[in-house]
């Protein structure tokens, strides 16, 4: 795929790739275990449980306990993949993530299932839109947001190999593949993947917003505006070099994410720009507790669409 082709039609729930990959990793490495909170079904762990009944630790509805148990497992030589709905993993167990995982420097992969507003009409209690800000604030915790199934799997490979404390979103909202066919690996830790070399505007997006940014680039191209798309799948540490290159080579950046603006990707980009190369930028995100509605309805509601991104880009170059 290049910047000027339309985004593929087929879409995927990243949890499917996640669970297949987890089984493959566990086949190869007996240290890998899954820890969850009555979330076997919602984390797509049924097949894992059937294959490795002893290596699935379901603690029940108890997220603080769940993350603490994972730390104990890591202390005992295991590599826990903690699988729970994003809002409860990041919100309920924040202090365990800080003290027991990051501060203690354990190789634990915290897998935030169904992040963003994937739980649409279940409402703000079930939306995981603050997670990136909360997790970014914790030292020694890498924050990953793979944008498609290929990236999800490649990020899991990296997670196991690195032995790092990691928070990773695993998307439920169906997304097309956004990984260009010519890439050797779908995910490189700490590197932004750039599609296109447009120098009017840079569209910086993460997760569900990446395919929408690619569509926005198509819309803009038809109007004679050239865009490049930056897929940020490592939110922390941020690839400042690629951000600054885009800032130098374009008239401005649009940053789009399925999360709050305070402390999210946009805030990370803004800090990098302000300190090194002040540039014009626009920030799109979730601006307030959502009203009732499906994930798609809410993305539309908050302007997190190809059109919303293109509109913001036009204002920058116009």
């Amino acid at each position: 795929m290049n910047a000027h082709s339309s985004v593929a039609n087929e879409t995927f729930d990243c949890r499917v790739a996640f669970s297949e990959k987890l089984i493959a990793l566990a086949e190869a490495d007996p240290r890998i275990v899954a820890v969850c909170n009555d979330s076997v079904g919602s984390s797509n762990l049924n097949a894992f449980r059937d294959r490795f009944p002893d290596r699935l630790i379901n603690v029940g509805i108890a997220e603080q306990n769940m993350v603490g148990v994972a730390a104990g497992l890591a202390n005992g030589g295991f590599i826990p993949f903690v699988c729970a709905a994003g809002p409860f993993l990041s919100g309920r167990a924040t202090e365990q993530v800080k003290a027991d995982v990051a501060y203690s420097n354990y190789g634990i992969v915290l897998c935030a299932m169904s992040p963003g507003m994937a739980y649409g009409e279940l409402g703000p209690t079930h939306h995981s839109i603050e997670d990136i800000s909360w997790m970014r604030a914790i030292d020694n915790l890498d924050v990953l947001v793979p944008a498609d199934p290929e990236q999800t799997k490649a990020a899991m490979d990296w997670a196991v190999a690195s032995g790092r404390p990691i928070y990773m979103r695993v998307g439920r909202h169906k997304v097309p593949s956004v990984t260009p066919a010519d890439r050797d690996v779908a995910f490189t830790f700490g590197k932004i993947d750039v599609t296109g070399d447009g120098n009017d505007v840079a569209l910086v997006a993460t997760g569900t917003l990446v395919s929408r940014a690619l569509e926005a680039a198509d819309i803009l191209k038809a109007e004679g505006i050239s865009a490049r798309v930056l897929n940020v799948s490592t939110i922390k540490p941020l690839d400042a070099e690629t951000i600054l290159k885009a800032a130098r080579e374009t008239k401005g950046l649009v940053v789009a994410e399925e999360g709050v603006l305070e402390g999210g990707l946009g805030a990370a980009v803004a800090t990098t720009l302000a300190e090194n190369h002040p540039a014009k930028a626009r920030f799109l995100g979730v601006t307030g507790f959502a009203p009732t509605g499906s994930n798609d309805f809410l993305l539309e509601h908050f302007g997190l669409t190809a059109k919303g991104i293109a509109d913001a880009a036009r204002k920058l170059v116009g």
Binding site: E121, L122, P291, T292, S294, F297
Partner: peptide, 10 residues
């Protein structure tokens, strides 16, 4: 659970 309803899922 309809769009903009006061009757949210929770």
């Amino acid at each position: 659970m309809k769009p903009l309803s006061k009757l949210n899922g929770h």
